[in-house]
Amino acid sequence: MTTSILDIEHLSKSFGHKQVLKDVSFGVQAGHIIGLVGPNGAGKSTIMKAILGLFNYPEGKIMVDGEVVSPTSHQSMDEVGALIEYPGIYPFLTGYQHLHLFSKKTTSDTQVMDIVRKLRMDAYINRKAKTYSLGMKQKLGIALALVNNPRLVILDEPMNGLDPQSNKDLRNLILSYARSGTTFLISSHILSELEKLIDDIVVIDQGQIVYTQSMVTLESGSKKLLAFKTSDDVKASHILAQHGYQLDKSGGVSVIENGQNQMADMINLLTGNGINIEDVQHVHNDLETILLNLLKDDQVKGSK
């Protein structure tokens, strides 16, 4: 049985006259990795800050591990690690001193160095942070969020400034923490990286949740296409349609895969009608395409 570690109910927030969050509600199951995605200014960082109790909100309720969170109610934050917007780094301290500064008494030096190794920070961990590059600072910010082995980790654009190897290291690190029960709420614009990680997705646009779903459901609901490049696309489309294949309206000769239609049959059909096939590809909608479609259509869906 899964339990909820984070629940947000009817959260609203305005800055001045601008309402930045409108009746936001969603829940996060313990041990899941949740992607919080949406366009710039949609309210992702604001939600994350609210979860961390960084400001008052006039309406709604946020519960972390069953305890209400607000600027005046912070006890559950003891089990939360976070990186919000950009890493907060003291230039006069080394990376190791940062980790030492924010580690709990129960966090051993072995745990600290384990994170350092996993993020490949060994070479510069004892250098002053003022000499760090953007990527190095980002890794330190991630290490600070993870150092106390929290139950809930909130990462706002954690892939910012990371090179491909570091992205892979981070992905492996997140997955290994998740396997041991840590819950992650991650926002990122690098959707190709995010989709390799997340179990569930929450889409926000203009301060409103427009979609919440598990990735399994999302992917099963997305179209898989078989795209042909032929010597006569018009004729090919006509023949395929005549034989009951469902064509996608996106253009070209794209057949919607339904599990029954076989690529070999279609190839035989087309070549049998004198059409030369130059190329065939399986096309699968990635998270970016799905998200863009969602935001374009402005679909508002209920949660799971």
Binding site: L52, G53, L54, P71, H74, D78, V80, I84, G88, Y90
Partner: peptide
Amino acid sequence: YGTIKELLYRKYYR
């Protein structure tokens, strides 16, 4: 330095 968030989100009060 942006470290205020590091301080404020932890279990301590402002």
